[in-house]
């Protein structure tokens, strides 16, 4: 039997460390797009081991797993440990839709003192801690690409985008990051 296929990453070898900002591709993770009506949340939360958030822009996190509220019946569930989220959801009888998007999305970790300024080079949302607190998550735009922003620390964001947009998103972050500070 032929050897098992190797995985290649869209942002292999890309990173940037500059004054007050650093960019690094996140490692692989399992991801699903989870869709479900309110009645199913208890069962799904139990299966996933975390409470699916119901407030806009909220997220829930437990160990390597997180669920980000993206819409009133939509969550992005990420497991950095690579757990089989599809299998977990398949065991839930309650009405829902789970679709594997582990390879559709990838993440870039953007961190440092200037993180808000760098993201605000192309994201029009108010990213101040008051309006976008630690734990907040939102689908939004970054220049001409769609991204999911998730604030994982005062000075750190997890930025998700689709695979083929990663070069653009990283390139734009890199350009904004290199921009000399006043």
């Amino acid at each position: 039997m032929a050897e098992t296929a190797r995985r290649t990453f869209a942002l292999e070898g890309r990173s940037y460390d500059g004054d007050g900002i650093s960019l690094a591709p996140a490692g692989p993770a399992s991801r699903i797009s989870l869709r479900a009506p309110a009645e199913s949340l208890a069962a799904l939360s139990e299966a996933l081991g975390l409470d699916l958030p119901v407030r806009p822009k909220a997220s829930a996190r437990k160990n390597a797993r997180a669920a980000l509220w993206l819409g009133p019946d939509e969550w992005l569930v990420i497991d950095e440990g690579g757990a089989d989220l599809m299998a977990i959801c398949a065991r839930v009888a309650a009405l829902h839709s789970a679709v594997d998007i582990s390879h559709r999305n990838l993440a870039i970790l953007v961190s440092g003192r200037r993180v808000e300024d760098v993201l605000n080079a192309a994201c029009p949302q108010d990213l101040s801690v008051a309006r976008f607190p630690v734990g907040a998550a939102s689908r939004t735009v970054f220049g001409k690409a769609e991204i999911v922003l998730w604030r994982i620390g005062e000075d750190a964001f997890h930025v998700e985008c689709w695979r083929s947009f990663a070069d653009y998103v990283f390139g734009l972050l890199d350009a904004a990051g290199r921009e000399a500070v006043r």
Partner: peptide
Amino acid sequence: MLLIHCPYCEEERPEAEF
């Protein structure tokens, strides 16, 4: 760019998202 209040997100968001 307009700001639009999304009744689902329950806040005003930039027009570029709409």
